[in-house]
């Protein structure tokens, strides 16, 4: 569990609070040479959210820089999952759902009338706490979203499946059992399969809700290593109760407490020199 000692690409930590910093990742530069897209992929502008009369999130202001990994930490029930599920609009159908403020994706409100919900969810993928492969073959799982969005068909699907399984490092383990049930895989492998499934539809943003809390340390390390490789092409927001994981795997950290964004900033800074007393209590293990 010492992923911090593994070699990992050293990149300037991009902080959304100081957008004047001109340091842009070279890979990002290549992806978007004329910088036509906003640097903040997701931007929560004063998001306030309630279920019925119960206010869950209060006035959240935060921007997520393209190609970064942001850890979302905070005690249980503080609204981490709710915040995450707002971004791909999984909360919209919850009874009593109301919101003020706005969340934008690439500069456009996620609730804008011309925003198509299904393509929004294609652009904003999600990985859940418990691996949730569908009851279909391993190969069909990987391409389930691809088929639904009619991105590819026929033989192309096999190519997509192989490519994505390779990307998550699962190919060698499953290449001879693509037609088998996914439930015979280990928990960690199932989670990697779900990651492959989410990646297959080509998202820009990936939301991860405690993706490794049901996994053993070795699988956890595997998943964490993978997440790093997904940047900077993808922007990741990861909810975690594991502070070690937040420190190891993220560029920025945001600390949520009772529905309020108490503090956010570069991970190292937030853990080493927290500005708020509540943050300090939490990251030193004296709260929650």
């Amino acid at each position: 569990m010492t992923l911090g000692e593994q070699p990992r690409p050293v990149r300037p930590t991009v902080v959304s609070t100081t957008p004047s910093k001109p340091e842009i990742d070279p890979i990002l530069e290549a992806l978007d040479p004329d910088r036509s897209r906003p640097a903040d992929v997701v931007n929560s502008q004063g998001l306030t959210l309630s279920f019925g009369n119960k206010r869950i999130l209060s006035d959240i202001h935060i921007a997520f820089r393209r190609g970064t990994i942001t850890a979302l930490i905070g005690p249980t029930g503080c609204g981490k999952s709710t915040f995450l599920r707002t971004i791909n609009r999984m909360n919209d159908k919850v009874s009593g759902f109301r919101h003020e403020g706005d969340v934008t994706l690439e500069g456009e409100s996620i609730w804008a009338p011309r925003q198509d919900l299904l393509s929004l969810r294609r652009r904003v993928g999600m990985l859940f706490q418990r691996p949730n492969p569908f009851p279909m073959s391993i190969r069909d799982n990987v391409v389930a979203g691809v088929k639904a969005h009619q991105i590819a068909k026929g033989k192309q699907l096999d190519v997509v499946a192989e490519e994505r399984l390779r990307q998550v490092g699962l190919w060698d383990a499953v290449k001879d059992r693509l037609k088998d049930s996914p439930f015979r895989l280990s928990g960690g492998q199932q989670q990697l399969l779900c990651l492959a499934r989410a990646l297959a539809v080509g998202p820009e943003v990936l939301l991860l809700d405690e993706p490794t809390s049901a996994l053993d340390p070795i699988s956890t390390e595997l998943v964490e290593g993978l997440l790093r490789q997904l940047t900077p092409a993808l922007t990741l927001i990861i909810v975690t109760h594991n502070l070690g994981q937040a420190r190891r795997a993220s560029d920025n950290t945001m600390f949520l407490y009772e529905g309020q964004l108490v503090e956010h900033g570069p991970t190292e800074e937030l853990f080493e020199r927290p500005k708020e007393a509540r943050t300090e209590r939490y990251v030193t293990g004296r709260m929650g």
Binding site: N88, L118, F128, N132, P133, P135, A144, G145, V201
Partner: peptide
């Protein structure tokens, strides 16, 4: 049918009718 299947389908952006046929009804 486990909520996890439905949410998984929803989060992938599957059209509701498609998810119903391919995931929910099949299960």
């Amino acid at each position: 049918v486990p909520t996890a299947y439905r949410e998984g389908a929803e989060a992938l952006g599957m059209p509701p009718g498609y998810a119903l046929r391919k995931v929910t009804l099949k299960t």
